[in-house]
Design a binder for these strands. Structure first.
Length: 281
DNA sequence: ATACGCCCCTGGTGGC
DNA sequence: TGCCACCAGGGGCGTA
């Protein structure tokens, strides 16, 4: 379930194990994911030393000492599975890319739905990659303020739910954390985006930051040496207030029995929205 | 420009 | 035990 906090957690896990290591081998098990892999990807990464990692929106950047940057997206179902290379790997038909380091680590990029991607560009050109064109601010940056958000939303007649899902408004939120942030801020997902200003924007921005920070903390704290027992990076138990809780009592309304409505589900832009119609206006 | 629908792909779940 | 419809973290593209 990779939204910003999961991608951040995976990125930190990869950094903890791979930063500074030399790539002994990279194996592509198929010619593409969402898009074709660059034809020279294997040649450029084999033997390169991994110098560092970064995250932008839901993308992981892996830099090498050759001045290249791999741009990784996990899509809907992408995972990174870490193991020692001397153990026979568990066969997985959806393990599409394998990176092995000189010191004996093996990272598998597993993605059943294949909505993920792996590209390779010159690091100093990474900012020009189409994936990053037009992206909005990082929600955890200091520059993401209520004033900045309401300026980006001004005049927009689409719903605030759809606007927050739009990576050009703010980068890295997905379906889960948009639902959670709107709940925390007490804002209806149906509300016209352009009306989220003033006090509402002043509630929404801290709500977005808080829910993302809590999820990153939960991810980080659940990792032991950045790797879970099953070898997966960045997956952890979530404690969502509304997401996936249709029909349950609203955790924000005093109770029992709480509000009459409880948590409802509706569809916006083809995606499920979970919300409390009593608290969120 | 903006908004919306549809598509990419596989797997899990629940109803009949 | 099938079988089938529906749902799932994302994003890009085409059409009004």
């Amino acid at each position: 379930m990779p939204e910003l906090p999961e991608v951040e957690t995976v990125m930190r896990g990869l950094a903890g194990t791979l930063a500074g290591k030399r790539i002994a081998r990279i194996t592509l098990r198929r010619p593409d994911l969402r898009r074709a892999f660059p034809p020279d990807l294997v040649a450029r990464l084999t033997g390169a030393r991994i110098t560092g990692f970064a995250r932008r929106a839901k993308y992981i950047l892996m830099q090498t000492d050759r001045g290249d940057a791999a741009i990784i997206h996990l899509g809907m179902s992408g995972r990174m599975v870490l193991a020692r290379a001397n153990r026979p790997p568990e066969a997985n038909p959806h393990e599409h890319v394998v990176i092995e380091t000189e010191d004996g680590w093996r990272v598998g990029f597993v993605d059943p739905r294949r909505f993920g991607s792996l590209d390779l560009v010159r690091a100093d050109e990474a900012g020009n990659h189409p994936a990053f064109k037009g992206l909005g601010p990082e929600p955890l940056d200091a520059a993401f303020t209520p004033a900045a958000l309401s300026a980006a939303l001004a005049g927009r007649r689409t719903s605030i739910k759809a606007a927050l899902m739009d990576q050009r408004i703010v980068a890295g939120l997905g379906n889960i954390y948009v639902c959670e942030a709107l709940f925390r801020a007490g804002i209806s997902p149906r509300r016209a985006a352009g009306t989220v200003a003033g006090a509402r924007a002043a509630r929404l921005v801290p709500a977005i930051k808080a829910v993302l920070e809590a999820a990153i903390r939960a991810g980080g704290s659940s990792l032991r040496d950045h790797v879970q027992p099953n070898g997966e990076l960045g997956y952890f138990q979530h404690a969502w207030a509304v997401y996936g809780r249709e029909g349950e009592p609203c955790p924000g309304c005093p109770g029992p029995p709480g509000c009459k409505s409880g948590i409802r589900r509706m569809v916006q832009g083809g995606r499920s929205t979970f919300y409390c119609p009593t608290r969120q206006t």
